[in-house]
């Protein structure tokens, strides 16, 4: 097994930067963490999931689709170097797997895959959550995984690319610690997962009344933050800008909390209230996606609950739902 000592972290990643377009957790000047480049600030692997979605590396908030010049259409350019993106938690890896699936399905999103294809994905786990809390072991779905054992980072590899990257690192014998982390990961409380399952069941059994959604919707200011922070939210809008000699088409993250998202050409909106839109947002993840894709598409990364300024992220809403409507039936 390979190991990365804290004092070697900067040199290790700096060396990688010559081969890859590097994106990894860094600390910005005001203490905000993000998945950025080495120039953005010191590397900050510790601290758990970063607030922004790591999948932004493949699909930024706004990015080019094509440029039209004198009758020719030029597609957006490829990344010059392969991407190396570190900082995915186990839950983020689930999200990535989910969106990879539907971006590839049917109509293949070539803009996404131009960045995504060939990218090296590195997960983080172990005692590197907030305040040293455990992030469960990932165990695959990425190229390599940095497991914090409290002092240094054990490096597990799952692909040739991962092995290549870890090859130069020193070996260590840490089976025992790893075993311990594995056990703790398995027994780590999965309250959130259970809760989201129960909320999903309530929705699918149609046991949540509209009055509940009015109440929740009344607290939504349509900031769109929940959608923009969610790694499995991938809806986008498209715009054209006309310059003197060319037209640029770009696309940007959209949000189903916006009225314009579903408005019909006539001006009518079948989802014309925050209540209906909030219902739709949660329904989609917990009821519609399980039908279509066989799994709930909220993997509890926690980002919408952090970003929502009024406390109605998906976990908070699921909790309220379960609290109120499971009880009702029991009574």
């Amino acid at each position: 097994m390979k190991v990365l000592y804290p004092e070697h972290i900067p040199a290790f990643f700096t060396a990688l930067a010559s081969r890859f377009e590097l994106r990894l957790p860094v600390m910005l000047s005001d203490g905000t963490r993000t998945i950025g480049s080495l120039e953005d600030g010191p590397i900050a692997l510790m601290g758990g999931a970063v607030p922004g979605k790591p999948t932004a590396a493949f699909f930024p908030q706004q990015g080019p689709v094509f440029t039209a010049v004198e009758g020719a259409v030029l597609p957006s350019s490829d990344q010059a170097n392969r991407l190396f993106v570190a900082g995915f938690t186990g839950r983020d890896i689930d999200c990535l797997r989910f969106i990879d699936r539907f971006f590839a399905d049917g109509w293949r999103d070539d803009i996404y895959f131009r960045q995504r294809a060939g990218a090296v994905i590195a997960g983080v786990s172990g005692y590197c959550g907030p305040g040293g809390a455990l992030l469960p072991l990932i165990g695959g779905g990425c190229d390599l995984e940095f497991v914090c054992d409290g002092k240094c980072w054990l490096v597990l590899t799952y692909s040739q690319a991962g092995e290549g990257i870890a090859a130069e690192l020193p070996d260590t014998d840490a089976e025992e610690v790893l075993h311990q982390i594995r056990i703790e990961s398995l027994t780590a409380a999965n309250e959130g997962d259970e809760l989201i399952q129960r909320a999903s069941q309530l929705l699918r059994a149609n046991r949540v009344p509209d009055s509940f959604w009015s109440e929740i919707g009344d607290r939504c200011i349509s900031c769109t933050g929940c959608n923009l922070a969610c790694p499995t939210c991938t809806c986008f809008g498209v715009q054209d800008w006309r310059y003197a000699n060319n037209i640029e088409r770009s696309r940007m993250w959209d949000s189903c909390q916006l009225d314009g998202f579903m408005r019909e050409a006539s001006g009518h909106n079948p989802l014309g209230s925050e209540a209906l839109r909030t219902r739709r947002r949660i329904h989609h993840k917990l009821a519609a996606d399980p039908e279509r894709w066989g799994e709930i598409s909220c993997f509890l990364c926690g980002r919408c609950d952090v970003v929502c300024p009024t406390g109605i992220g998906i976990l908070a809403v699921a909790m309220e739902m379960v609290d109120r409507f499971e009880q009702e039936t029991i009574r």
Partner: peptide
Amino acid sequence: VGVEPSTTHPVSRGGLCV
């Protein structure tokens, strides 16, 4: 290509409006 809220800011505390 986008914005990222400051998570430490005393006013916005990681959020923004539309």
